[in-house]
């Protein structure tokens, strides 16, 4: 029994020895690899810190400045565009107002003209009518005057004849007939 335990212990010791001498434990770092690993890391870090990052930071700063400039320029251009647009709108509104004003004025002028012409035409027509009436009245007056003068003459003549002849019925009648005929004839002759 003791021998068995001793042999187990011996085996265990042997196994441990074998393990130590045999394959190394992958959880333990190897010195050479650590040295070369450090070297490799330092190379990369040196290159990045010494060359890459200064260049990167420079280009980033430049890019930021460029973008800032671009944005400022864009902002300025936008402001300018806004201003021009407002101006243009204002001009447009002014022009529209002006056009409206001109149209209104034209309309008013036309209306005025129409009314003037109408008034003038009416006036002319009235004047024509008045002149015609005046002429008619004058003609009538002239005719009356002429007629009155003739009637007086005739009456005087008739009276002379009546007085100068024997008055009888038949003679009167004839006389009157003659007179009327005369009048009619003189009337008709005119």
């Amino acid at each position: 029994m003791l021998g068995a335990i001793a042999s187990i212990g011996l085996l265990a010791a042997e196994a441990a020895e074998e393990a130590a001498a045999g394959p190394e434990n992958p959880i333990l770092p190897d010195l050479a690899e650590m040295i070369f690993g450090t070297l490799a890391f330092l190379i990369v870090f040196g290159v990045l810190a010494r060359y890459a990052f200064p260049a990167l930071n420079r280009i980033l700063a430049e890019r930021a400045a460029r973008i800032q400039g671009e944005m400022e320029r864009a902002e300025a251009a936008r402001t300018e565009a806004d201003r021009v647009l407002a101006e243009y709108r204002e001009q447009l509104a002014g022009a529209r107002e002006e056009a409206n004003r001109i149209i209104e004025e034209a309309r008013r002028t036309a209306e005025q003209l129409r009314r003037d012409l109408q008034a003038k035409a009416e006036q002319e027509a009235q004047a024509t009518v008045a002149r015609a009436q005046e002429e008619i009245r004058a003609e009538r007056d002239r005719v009356f005057d002429e007629l009155r003068a003739q009637v007086a003459d005739i009456a005087v003549e008739l009276a002379g004849r009546v007085v100068g002849q024997a008055l009888d019925r038949a003679a009167h009648e004839r006389l009157i007939e003659e007179y009327i005929d005369q009048v009619a004839g003189s009337n008709g002759s005119r």
Partner: peptide, 12 residues
């Protein structure tokens, strides 16, 4: 993978 050797992880 060189990182599967413990050296690089240990150093880093």
């Amino acid at each position: 993978p060189t990182t599967s050797r413990m050296a690089i992880p240990a150093v880093l």
